[in-house]
Amino acid sequence: MTTRWVSVAALRAHGVPARSRIGFADYFDEGSHGDHVIVEWFDGSRWVATDTQLDPSAGFPVDVLLAADAGDQAAERRLAERYATDPRLHPGDVISCHSPREVVYEVDLRQRLPTTP
């Protein structure tokens, strides 16, 4: 993931709004939907996705999440199916969080955060 973080940092250093995005890439191995991180940068009117691991001229699709966000119903169905069948997306009631500062703590997903009026 280092190339993504460096790309986001470089874009931001040049005043370009940028962020990383996590989703499932189905374009590396046929039949596989591995978790993957991409970079998005804001061109002044919309967020543009790019995968810094790939040659931009190769023509790979970036991410099923982007298609679903754009209203693609087939992508929505693929995401729903993935969520329903992939046990990695159902981690249990308590998860372990690891911060960039090497702090490790548990979060109980059954507890709700207080809402503000």
Results as ranks from 00 to 15, higher is better:
Leu54Phe: 12
Asp86Trp: 00
Asp29Tyr: 14
Arg78Leu: 14
Ile38Pro: 00
Pro100Val: 15
Asp35Asn: 04
Ala68Ile: 15
Ala74Met: 04
Val104Pro: 06
Phe42Pro: 14
Leu65Phe: 08
Arg12Leu: 03
Ile38Lys: 08
Asp29Arg: 11
His90Ile: 02
Ala18Pro: 10
Val16Met: 15
Asp108Thr: 11
Gln73Ser: 13
Pro91Met: 04
Gly71Met: 06
Trp47Arg: 08
Ala49Phe: 01
Arg12Ala: 05
Asp29Ala: 08
Gly92Thr: 06
Glu81Arg: 04
His98Asn: 09
Ala80His: 04
Thr2Pro: 00
Arg78Ile: 10
Thr50Gly: 10
Val104Lys: 09
Arg88Lys: 07
Ala58Pro: 00
Val8Lys: 02
Arg77Gly: 06
His33Val: 03
Val8Ser: 01
Ala68Gln: 10
Asp43Val: 03
His33Ile: 03
Arg19Asp: 01
Phe60Asp: 11
Ala49His: 02
Gly59Phe: 11
Asp26Met: 09
His90Lys: 08
Ala25Phe: 04
Ile22Thr: 04
Asp63Tyr: 03
Ala84Ser: 07
Val37Lys: 01
Leu89Val: 01
Arg19Phe: 00
Leu89Met: 11
Tyr83His: 05
Ser96Asp: 14
Pro87His: 00
His14Cys: 08
Asp93Asn: 02
Glu106Trp: 02
Ser7Trp: 05
Thr115Ala: 15
Glu81Trp: 03
Asp69Gly: 08
Ser96Tyr: 01
Phe60Pro: 02
Ala10Arg: 05
His14Tyr: 04
Val16Ser: 05
Pro117His: 12
Arg78His: 06
Ser96Gly: 09
Tyr27Pro: 11
Asp69Trp: 13
Trp5Leu: 11
Val103Glu: 12
Ala49Gln: 02
His90Ser: 14
Ser32Glu: 13
Val64Met: 05
Asp43Phe: 14
Trp41Phe: 15
Ser20Gly: 11
His33Cys: 05
Glu81Pro: 00
Pro56Val: 11
Pro56Gln: 06
Thr3Gln: 13
Leu66Lys: 07
Pro56Ile: 10
Ala25Tyr: 10
Gly15Tyr: 09
Arg110Phe: 05
